[in-house]
């Protein structure tokens, strides 16, 4: 199975933030869209980092003036991206090994989506459940 089958049922809206925007703005975006992560993009729309609730909380633990800081200060720069043709299984392995919970998806040069480790695990589970169900049905209904 490929990443594209996850993207097929996901929102086309990728919520992004600029590196020079404030954490105040970032928090507003997270709250407005009810999400946990934003992709940080440069002026050309290319992803250069990722910022999560956790990053902001960590900064808040350090300083009261957290909301005035810029996104670039707390974002994670160590970013890998995936493509719609990537295999689900290897992406899951990579995310687990490198502790990435979100992955921006690029279609050639364009950012077209973000998937979370939850999306990938759910797709895997549905796949296994489907296989088990198909086998069970064969066993139960196939006897006569």
């Amino acid at each position: 199975m490929k990443i594209e089958s996850i993207l097929a049922t996901k929102s086309l809206n990728v919520i992004t933030v600029g590196p020079d925007q404030s954490l105040r703005e970032a928090v507003d975006l997270l709250a407005e869209h009810n999400i946990g992560t934003l992709i940080v993009v440069d002026e050309a729309g290319q992803p250069i980092g990722i910022i999560s609730e956790r990053d902001i909380v960590r900064e808040a633990a350090r300083t009261e003036a957290v909301l005035g800081q810029t996104v670039s200060r707390v974002m994670t720069r160590d970013l890998i991206t995936a493509s719609p043709e990537d295999d689900l299984e290897t992406v899951l392995q990579t995310m687990t090994a490198k502790h990435f919970r979100h992955l921006p998806i690029m279609d050639r040069e364009r950012l077209i989506g973000v998937i979370s480790i939850g999306d990938v695990v759910k797709a895997q589970l549905d796949k296994y459940q489907g296989e088990v169900d198909t086998l069970q049905t064969q066993i139960i209904e196939g006897q006569v």
């Binding site: 594209e4 089958s5 549905d126 459940q129 489907g130 198909t134 086998l135 049905t137």
Partner: peptide, 12 residues
């Protein structure tokens, strides 16, 4: 979701 999955995958 696109053309993948066995019969049972359509259930979830």
């Amino acid at each position: 979701r696109g053309p993948t999955g066995v019969i049972g995958t359509n259930k979830p």
